[in-house]
Design a protein around this nucleic acid. Structure first.
Lengths: 153, 153
DNA sequence: CTCTTTGACTTTCTTTGACTATTAATATTA
DNA sequence: TAATATTAATAGTCAAAGAAAGTCAAAGAG
């Protein structure tokens, strides 16, 4: 069950927890060499796990002394939930993206692990056994609906 | 006489008894190779013998590093939830009935009010905007799936 | 007829690599 | 010396290949 992308994700998160700071600077090639992978795999990890919607902001610079700066956004609960509901999710949401969003919500202590499990179950492909409106559309609805209960309170 | 599906079923159950843990991760292709059968036969076994109604919860992931995770629901520990999942809900659940069930669960302190709100949102008619499988069938699925997370923990 | 087995085809993630773009450092020229 | 060109050092993009799992319908067995 060796998934390098997950390992790199954890490595970065662990590094951030370690320094205590909310920003981390890495060098793409160095990191790639550390994990013995193609440099572009780092981009893959960043775009799938450290996007704005997961609560991270990324800046980078090319050329000599270049870097990638990963910043963990400290957004308040409601604005973050609003962003998810009104901007990110839209009318289609894949299962993978849903799972990643939920993982981050738990990491940000916006939901408990029980709540995460409940929501994961609700947006799971196996639960949403539909044809006519595509699964991703139904999932988007359910997800937005669930998240909005958290804003209401 | 030799029903391969039964043998695979037993093999998986034996594996779970062996490890003592309530979850087991397998790789579909590996298992298929072990039994010299088509990979899709594993799906057949899982869907006929390891569904939620049979007391198991399944998660899976495709792509590199993919897996199938089978978790046994320890129903004895949660009789009320089990009753709901295995007897009450069945394969169709109206919105009214879902709301009643959730209200009851909160009154019995099995779920928090937040959890109730989340689940209500998930099984709401507005979230489940489907035609082809009737809403009540999809709702039953989602509901059982969510409730089974409470047994799993 | 029902349940099981098989296999071709599909879908979803991940990994890799060739090619491109940008920036900083350095060398060259006016 | 100031301006400009060149080179080296980074990071970015995109599509193809790889690695799983899922679906569905037809064939087979009881």
């Amino acid at each position: 069950m060796f998934r390098l992308s997950d390992i790199i994700e954890e490595f970065i998160k662990e590094l951030m927890r370690g320094t205590g700071a909310d920003t981390l600077e890495i060098q793409r090639n160095e990191l790639a060499e550390h994990f013995n992978c193609a440099p572009s795999q780092i981009n893959y990890v960043l775009s799938t796990r450290f996007s704005i919607d997961k609560g991270y902001y990324i800046e980078s610079r090319r050329g000599g002394g270049g870097y990638i700066r990963i910043q963990k956004l400290e957004i308040a609960r409601k604005p973050y939930l609003s962003h998810l509901i009104f901007e990110h999710i839209g009318d289609s949401l894949t299962q993978m993206d849903a799972l990643r969003v939920l993982k981050n919500l738990e990491e940000k202590n916006i939901i408990s692990s029980r709540e995460r499990a409940i929501m994961e179950a609700a947006v799971n492909d196996k639960s949403i056994n539909v044809f006519s409106p595509p699964k991703d559309a139904v999932r988007a609805n359910i997800m937005k609906s669930m998240l909005s209960t958290l804003i209401r309170e």
